[in-house]
Simulated assay, not measured.
Amino acid sequence: MEKKTLQYTLRQYIQGKLSEENSRAFLSYVKSGKDKILLQELIQEVLEDPIDQHLLDDPTLLAVLDNTWDQLHLQINKPKTRSLWDWKRIGAIAAAIIGLFFIGRWFFAVEHKSVAPQAAQNVISPGKQSATLTLANGKQIRLHEAQNGRLLEQSGIRISKTTDGQLIYEVSGKTQGDSEHNTLSTTKGETYRIKLPDGTLVWLNAASSLSYPVSFANQKDRTVALTGEAYFEVAKDAKQPFIVQAADQQVKVLGTHFNVNSYADESAVQTTLLEGRVQVSSHNQKLLLAPGEQSSLTAHGVLKSHPIDTAPVIAWTNNEFMFDEDDIESVMRKVARWYNVEVIYQGKKTTEKFGGGISRFDDVQKVLSLLEKTGAVHFRIDGKKIHVLP
């Protein structure tokens, strides 16, 4: 593209003024690698921030490209919501979409004056890509300690670990009829991705686990069991439905993209559909979800659905916190899982709702400082404990 045309298109894209068709065309052009240096210069001009060249080659960029481009079209400010957004947030989303994954360098230019002085002496690191693989025989493999490449073969399936933090199951030979089960689990402050033997991709959030057969061959369906939260991109197979068992509900699909949140400390088990169709059932209740809908199974066993903005729901798969009229307890549950901290409430809890987002790679003090700037809440850090104050 000519420089002026590229500059104009970039600005239109960042401002959310491109149509879906033109946005996809622009992304395809960017991913082609043409005008890479010029594009880098233009982004620096638009966002007024330096870009590290080596970040352009980050192996996680394809996941970012594939899952975040539509986040540019979020509703940024909503009534009665304490907004964490500013104009740089728009640019941050756009930059992440087009492949400049800044690891939180400039998501927000905030000062730390509002955080208590002793907080500066407490270093609470963000989470990382790590998980534990438990084999059928009980053997455990800490994936962040394992070497990249082939790990083992099991029931005719080759299991390997990639450099970008993904566990991959591939058919390597004749699979057995009765498949063994493996479990991938994360603790607080961990997240991981896995490619199941049928080609289904799963993003596993912190403090979660996924149990699955090593092979789906010779089985009537593809059933997996989830605790915590995961995002699924299910490979299509009309002959073998994909079933997710989570708490007291079952999600049945043939091939689609959806997120399941089944944390025990949440008020409901939530299933959010992004693409395709899924059937959610619990006891004698059944719901058929369309894209952009979320089902909730309450603690009382009531299953219901409603329309929802899906971007905040799956923001964690792109290493972001994104809040959409969340109360302080909901916000802090996400913080506690990712930073592996204990949250203690002192005094009356704020009733304000929060909206906006920030990179999960940012220091916890930056996240808390941003929340404090809304004027609705204050924090004090004591070791691995975060005190929430009026």
Rank of each mutant, 00 (worst) to 15 (best):
R105P: 01
A264Y: 07
A299G: 03
Q12M: 08
G138F: 02
K31H: 08
V171W: 04
L297I: 04
R11S: 11
F26V: 03
E111V: 00
Q7I: 03
N205I: 02
T317Y: 10
K220M: 04
Q7K: 13
Y29H: 14
K174V: 03
D363S: 12
I124R: 08
K80T: 01
I98R: 09
R11N: 11
K78W: 04
V115K: 14
L100H: 13
D327R: 00
H73R: 07
P291F: 02
A376H: 03
T162I: 06
L55Q: 08
S359L: 04
L226E: 06
L371S: 09
K31E: 14
L370E: 08
L74M: 10
L135R: 12
T374A: 10
P79C: 02
D164I: 03
A95V: 02
Q15N: 14
F323S: 13
E233G: 09
D362Y: 03
T81F: 02
V367K: 15
Q15H: 08
I386F: 12
D265S: 09
L389A: 04
T9L: 14
D164T: 05
N22V: 00
A238T: 09
D237E: 08
T60G: 07
F258A: 11
T183Y: 06
L254S: 09
N67G: 11
P126Y: 07
L287I: 00
T271Y: 03
F108K: 14
F354M: 07
Q140H: 07
W87N: 14
T68W: 08
K252A: 01
V335L: 10
T271M: 07
S369G: 15
E342P: 04
V64Y: 13
M1K: 10
L152N: 00
N205G: 11
E320K: 15
L42W: 01
V335S: 06
Q147S: 13
Q12N: 08
W338R: 12
P307C: 05
W203C: 03
Q166N: 02
V253I: 00
S369H: 05
P79E: 02
S262G: 09
L226C: 06
A311C: 10
L303Y: 01
Q166V: 03
V110C: 11
I93A: 05
V30L: 13
E111Q: 13
K188M: 09
T68D: 15
T374E: 12
L368Q: 06
P197W: 08
R360K: 12
I358V: 11
T162F: 05
I141R: 11
F26C: 08
E342K: 14
R360F: 00
K385M: 10
F232A: 04
R333E: 09
Q140S: 10
L42K: 04
Q294E: 10
G375Y: 02
L303C: 09
G292H: 01
P79I: 01
E153S: 05
E21R: 14
G199S: 03
D70E: 12
K188D: 10
V269L: 11
I76A: 05
H283G: 06
T183V: 09
V377K: 06
W87Y: 03
T68Q: 14
Q176D: 06
